[in-house]
Amino acid sequence: MTDCTKTINVRRDVALEAKADAEAERRRLARRGTLVVNLLSSPGAGKTTLLEATARRLTPRHSMAALVGDLETDRDAQRLSPLVPAAQLTTGGACHLELPLVRRGLEALGDPQVDFLFIENVGNLVCPASHDLAEHLRVVLVSTTEGDDKPGKYPKMFRTSQAMLITKLDLLPHVPFCVEAVQADARRIQPELDILEVCAIQDTGISAWCDYLCQLRSERLAAYQELA
């Protein structure tokens, strides 16, 4: 009896099942009319402030709910709850959200039938890029205070996003941040990126952002109806 080694060829994406699972969830939510938006940025770029402004602008005509991810505390959910149904997802140390946590959050809200479901990811430009949360739209925020060199440093985040929001525009006169430079850096990585500029605390650019969301919702949901 001689020992030998047998090699079994596989060639399969390790994340194949997770991707299929996310796709099924994306389809389920699209078919009942919900556009899922995953918001990503470094800590403090203004995700919750944007959601507050978005809620004020959208909710007269559209329904929305928010799931907010943080390592600890329910501060962001507390901020949003007066405006829209919001659930906090605390990761207990993990640096990103994953689909099971999102499902738990949806359950906590009673699986609401809303036009828009916003997921505020944990502030981090690295790991959240690798996790599909069944979103139809991935939006990365870059604030004027964090420097215009971020896209090139975190290529996966920008490559996998469909839109980039430049936030805290009011601070532009006070910081060395070049809007054209960040746009060019991001478009090199993702030429199809839609780029918008906002200042959530002064409500600048919020109406264009909401128009963009509504337009995208019609387009994406129609695409899923056709697949049916």
Partner: peptide, 20 residues
């Protein structure tokens, strides 16, 4: 852009050949 499982090598014994 992915983590790909390429192959798995297992120990086998000559007298008990595994068909694949």
């Amino acid at each position: 852009d992915e983590l790909m499982l390429v192959s798995v090598s297992v120990a086998c014994h000559e007298h008990a050949k595994i068909s694949s």
